[in-house]
Amino acid sequence: MDSEFVYLKPPSLSDLLKHLEPWGEQSKVLAGGTDLLVLLRRHSLSPAYVVDLKGIEELQRLEEVEGGDVFLGAGITVNEAAHSGLVQKRYKAVADAANTLASYQLRNRATVVGNICNASPGADLAGPLLVFDAKVQIVSARGKREVLLQDFFAGVKKTILRPQELVYGLILPAVAAGERSLYLKQARIKGHDLGIVGVAARLDSRKKFHLAMSSVAPTPVRLTRLETLLNDSPWSPELPEQAAEAVREEIRPISDVRASAAYRSHMAGVLVKRAIRYLMEEG
C-alpha cells in the first residue's frame, strides 16, 4: 500500500472509542476493508490511523434480542448474514442482497455495517435494511444514540456519523410470521458487479407493501409515494404494472458508466413489477 498510516487493533470497544475521541478526524475505522483499502491504495484517503474493529468480540454477534428483534453487530460479514438461518427466515430480502454483493471471497471479508457506512448510492444491503425499518446503533466515548437507517444517509458516500463515532450494530425490528420479502438486482453481468438498479420489497403481515431502491438517487431511498399508492389501492392483476409506471415517475436516476438514466428508469419499473407480482402471488 502506498498510503502512510499506523494500523491499530484495539482489543475492546472502550479502547477503540478512547482512541477515536481525540484522533477521530485522523482515523478511519477498518471492518472488512473492501472499500477502505481500495481508497487507501488509490490515495483517495490518507488517514494517520487505520483502526481495525475485528479484535472486538462483542461486535461479532448476530442474534435475537428483546422483543424478537435481531441484533447484527458491526463485525458480521456479508457471507455470515447470507448464511444465517435467522436472516434467511425473517429478512429474506437481506439474505438475497447479501448473496448478490460482489464475489464469494469478497463477501467473506466485507461487512454488512461497512456497506451501510460506506453509503454508496448502490449499496446492495441498504434497500433491504430500509424496508425492514432497521435502526443504527451508534457509540462514542461520550455515549450512545440510535437513528433510523433512513436518517443515517446524508448524501453520496456521506452519513451523519461523526469522526468520533462508531456504528456498533444494526437492530432489525421483529417481523410477524408469514411476512414476505425479496431483493432484485439488475447488473451488467450475472456475477460480481455493482447494481444498475436494486429493488427491495416487503409485504408485511397486514398486507402493507414496503419498498426501497438503490442506484437511482444520491442515497439508497425508500419509495414512500409508491408505498402509499400500493397500500391505498385494492389488489388487482393490474397493480404490478401500475406500480411500474408509478416508480418511473418517483425516481430521477442519472446516467453513468454502468447505465443510462433511461435504462435505469425502465429497469426500475420492470423490477418493481416483478417484485410486486411475486409478493402478491405468495401473499
Binding site: 476493508g33 483499502l37 464469494y104 471471497q105 471479508r109
Partner: peptide, 12 residues
Amino acid sequence: KAVNSCLVLAQE
C-alpha cells in the same frame, strides 16, 4: 476462508 489477499493488510 477464501479471501482477496490484495484487500487484506498483512497485519490483519
